[in-house]
Design a protein around this nucleic acid. Structure first.
Lengths: 107, 107
DNA sequence: CAAAAAGTATCGCTACTCCGAACAAATATG
DNA sequence: CATATTTGTTCGGAGTAGCGATACTTTTTG
């Protein structure tokens, strides 16, 4: 009955020790609405709400929005790659990005 | 008349050379709605729409949502790229990494 | 235990999302 | 030029986000 979004919000909320009411007031929402996000499907919140909730819960909006259950495992190789990538000049970065777009086409 | 969100979307759309129609179809929206997001005051899109639009434009949803200019496009682009990279299969990631090594030689 | 707090659930309402389709402006093509 | 095509703009309306009110159940706390 719960959606990925709902579970993420509840887990994060619990982890921070917030009640529905508390999270609601921190994110300019109502208790009833937070509850609906956690329990009712399908939730279709506004970007603004998700942005505020994400900020309060200390995660990115992208994480909440992503419908997959993205188990994020820290990979040292990936992180090293990203650090290196970030130091490249803009045009090189652009090239790499396009490379990924192309390679990403075939599923 | 234009909001921060609207300007961001338009700038990114133009930079990619997309028409309203093209961006609309890539992000499962309508032409008229994309236009409203870019031009009308104040837009309050759903998280889902923003997520799709952000993905198509190669930035994070957080960048589009953030009303202040705290997040730089370049950072948002890099983060969106990294997120995409991490979801690739190992052999593709390997290819990208080697690509970066090659391009990093010069300069 | 009793009271307070937290969670569950529904309803009515207003304002807004998002679309299709028609219209206008711009640009391509002959 | 004319006009075909592509792009951008506008509008009406169906459906829904998100709130406050209310009421009930479960959990916490003293």
């Amino acid at each position: 009955m719960a959606t990925p979004l709902g579970e993420k919000i509840r887990d994060l909320r619990k982890a921070k020790g917030y009640t529905l009411d508390r999270l609601a007031e921190l994110s300019d929402s109502s208790k009833s609405y937070i509850w609906e996000l956690e329990n009712k499907n399908p939730p279709r919140p506004s970007a603004e709400k998700i942005g505020k909730i994400a900020a309060v819960l200390g995660v990115t909006a992208d994480y909440l929005i992503d419908p997959t259950d993205a188990i994020k495992v820290e990979d040292a190789t990936d992180n090293a790659f990203f650090r290196k990538y970030r130091e490249m000049d803009p045009t090189t970065k652009e090239k790499i990005r396009r490379m990924l777009d192309v390679l990403g086409d075939d599923e």
